[in-house]
Design a protein around this nucleic acid. Sequence first.
DNA 1: GTCCTACTTCAAGTCGGCTTGAGGTCAAGT
DNA 2: ACTTGACCTCAAGCCGACTTGAAGTAGGAC
Lengths: 129, 129
Amino acid sequence: MGKTEIGIGEVVRRSGVPASTLRYYEERGLIASVRRQGLTRVFAPAVLEQLALIAVCRTAGFSLDEITLMFSPDGSPSPNRAMLAAKADELDVTIQKLASMRDDLRHAAACPAPTHMECPTFRRVLGQT
Amino acid sequence: MGKTEIGIGEVVRRSGVPASTLRYYEERGLIASVRRQGLTRVFAPAVLEQLALIAVCRTAGFSLDEITLMFSPDGSPSPNRAMLAAKADELDVTIQKLASMRDDLRHAAACPAPTHMECPTFRRVLGQT
DNA sequence: GTCCTACTTCAAGTCGGCTTGAGGTCAAGT
DNA sequence: ACTTGACCTCAAGCCGACTTGAAGTAGGAC
C-alpha cells in the first residue's frame, strides 16, 4: 500500500483531537508517528483507531499510564494479558453501577417526589457501593 | 427520631471518604452538615448515601459541578429533571462503549495475536466512536 | 488545671491532563 | 525574494479535585 500516510492536520480533522494533545500523547508514548518529514510528523492511518481506543479508555476512567501499560507494543506479554482481564473485570463492576445509576436517573427525572433522596426507588443504587 | 446524628469521624469510618474531602465537598455545596457543635460538624446519617451517590457519579465521569447541579436541593426544578434525563442518555452511550470495550479486553486477553491491533475482533469498538 | 484527642480554619501544594505562547523551520505560491 | 500557512520545540500556565501543614479550639479523663 502506497501513500496512505497522513499529516497531523488530517489526524486533527478526522479524529477531533487537538494537535497539542497528539504531541502530548506521542511524548507520553501512547501513539507514535511513523517518521518525520523534516520536522513534521507523519502518521499511519491506524493512529485514528488508536485515538478512538484511547478515548474509550479515558471514558472508562483509565489513566494515560494505565492505557500505556495495557497497549504498550513493547509491554510485558503475559502480565499484560492478566492486566487486560483484570481491567475487564473492573469494567464489569463499573458498568453495573452505571446501569443502575442510569435507571435511577431516569426514575428521578420522572418521579414527582420533591427531593430525590426521599424516593425509595432512588436508593437502590446505594446499597452496593 | 432522637440522636441519629453522626460526627465527621464516624462518617470517615463508615464511608471511607477522608475528612479533608468531606470538608471540601461541604465547601463546594455537595453535602451539608446539619449543624455545628462548637466548631465541629454534625451530620445526618443520610450523608452516607449522598456520598455513595457522589462516588458513583464520579465513576460515571461527572464533574463535581455537574453533580451539584443534578442534585442541588435548591436547584431549578424542571431544568433539573430534563438534565437528569439527558445525563441518563449520556450514560447509555457510555455504557455501550464500556461494554464493548470490556468484551474486547477479554478477547485481547485470550487472543494469541502478537499485537492487539492486528486482531480483527479487537477493532469492533472503533467504528462507533 | 493540664493533657489528650478529635476536631477546626486557611493558605499553599500536588497531580494528572492538557493548553498556551514565544520564537523557529520549511515548502509552496506569487 | 518574500510572504503565508502549517508545522515544530520547549517552558510555563491552567483546571479540577483534592491533600497537606501550620496553628488554633473544645470537651473529656485524670
